[in-house]
Computed example of a mutant assay.
Amino acid sequence: MFTRRAVLAASLLSAPALAQGRVIRLIVPFAAGGAADSAARTIAPRMGERLGQTIVVENRTGASGSVGGGAVAQAAPDGQTLLWDASSHLVNPALLKGLPFDYATAFTPISLVTTFPQVLAVKAESPVRDLAGFIALAKAQPGTLNIGTQGNATAGHLAVVQLQRLAGITLQHVPYRGGADAARDLAGGNLDAAFITALSAGPVVAAGRARFLAVAAEQRVTVQPEVPTFAEAGLPGLTISEWAALFGPAKLPLATAETLHAALAASLAEPEVQARLAQLAAVPVGSRPADFARFVQEGRQSMATLVREADIRID
C-alpha cells in the first residue's frame, strides 16, 4: 500500500491550505490508553512535523464518542480541529437520539487510518481448545455462556451478533466500558469468553489466564501469528474490526483534506510507526478521502440494518 511513489508524492505535497505554525486539535472521543488513542499519539507527531504544525491530542469522552464528535462538528472547517473516531461513528446514527448534529452531514471523511481486528478468547479454565469446541459447547448450553465486549454497539458486540448468526448459537452478551475491563474479568474467570481487540486480550493470554481461539480478520495478525482466522478455524464470513479514522468538520476544503491525507500516508509509511502499530495489533490502511467517504456511507447503511435486525441498543 505504501509504495515509494506514494511516499514521494506525499513528501512533495506541502500544506498551503493549513496555516503554518499553528496548533491542530485532534479530538479523540475515547479514554487515553486505548488502541485508538495509542495509535493517534503514535501518528500525530509525525503528521505535525510534515505539516509544520503541532498536533495536540485531546480526549473528549462520553456518549459513545458523540461528545467529542460534537466538538468537531461545531468547529470551523479550517483543518485546525480534527476528529479521530472509531467504528461507533457508523453505528451511533442508528442508536443515539436527539444529537445536536447529524453524523451524515457534520463531518468530512479524510482517511481510514488503521484497523484493529477483533479476537475471540476464552478463560483459562474453559474446556474449549478451538472454535469448533466453543461452538459445540454453546450449542449444548444455549444462552448460558457469557461473552464480554468493549460495550454495546461496539465492534466486539457486532462481532458477537455475527458469530451467533453464522454459527447458529445463542450467547449471553456482557457489555463493558472498554476492552481492558472485559479482559480483566476474563482473566478472573468471571467471563466464559470475550470478543475484544488483540491489544486488550494479549496481556491476559500472555499471562496464561486466557486463550485465543480465532481472529476476525482476513489474514492473521502480526502480533499473534499463531491465532487462526475464523475462516481457517471453520467459520468463514466473520471479519470485523475496530478502527481509527480521521475526519474534519463539514465543508472542509478538498485541498486541506488532501494535504492532511498526504501527511498521514507518509507518516504511516515510516518503519518506526509501522512497528509501533504492529505492537498495538493495528493494521495500517491510510485510504484516500474519496475512498473513505464511500466506506463511511456504505458502512453507515449496513450498520443501520444490523442494529435494526439484531435489536441492538445502547443500554
Rank of each mutant, 00 (worst) to 15 (best):
A86C: 09
L120H: 06
T114N: 15
I314N: 03
Y103W: 00
T115A: 11
A121C: 07
A138G: 08
Y103Q: 07
L254F: 08
Q80C: 04
R4Y: 12
R313G: 09
A132S: 13
A167T: 14
E232K: 01
L120D: 08
P142A: 10
A9T: 02
A10G: 15
Q224S: 10
D78W: 05
P93M: 11
P228Y: 05
N92E: 11
T61Q: 10
P289I: 05
R22G: 15
Q150M: 11
A6W: 07
I196F: 01
Q301V: 15
V23T: 05
T197K: 15
M47D: 15
A201N: 15
N146S: 05
S267A: 11
Y176E: 00
P45S: 04
Q224F: 03
R41N: 15
L83K: 07
V307H: 01
G168E: 12
S64R: 08
G151N: 07
V67Q: 09
A159W: 12
A19T: 08
T3A: 05
P117S: 08
A94S: 15
V204L: 06
F195D: 06
S200R: 10
A263E: 06
A290H: 03
P127C: 08
P249A: 13
T3F: 03
G33D: 12
D85A: 13
A182F: 13
A136R: 15
V72L: 09
R300A: 12
A210R: 02
R313E: 03
W243R: 00
F30I: 10
I43L: 09
A31H: 00
A282N: 08
H89Y: 12
P228M: 01
A245C: 10
E242A: 09
P127Q: 14
L95F: 08
R276M: 04
R165S: 02
A10K: 13
G33P: 04
V67G: 06
P249E: 00
L99D: 09
A290R: 00
L191E: 02
A167R: 00
N146E: 05
A40W: 13
A244Y: 09
W84I: 02
L277N: 11
S66D: 11
R313S: 05
A132E: 00
V273F: 10
A250Y: 08
A71M: 15
V7P: 01
V307L: 02
D37T: 00
I314Q: 06
N146W: 14
L96N: 05
L99I: 07
T197F: 14
Q141P: 14
S87D: 15
T115D: 01
I196T: 05
G34M: 05
D181Y: 01
H261F: 05
R4F: 09
L260W: 14
A278P: 02
L137H: 13
R50D: 15
L235M: 12
A269L: 12
L264D: 06
E232C: 00
F101R: 14
G202T: 07
G21T: 07
A167Y: 01
G133T: 07
R308S: 09
G48D: 01
G156M: 06
V56S: 14
R313P: 02
F134Q: 03
G52A: 12
E226V: 07
D311Q: 15
N59A: 02
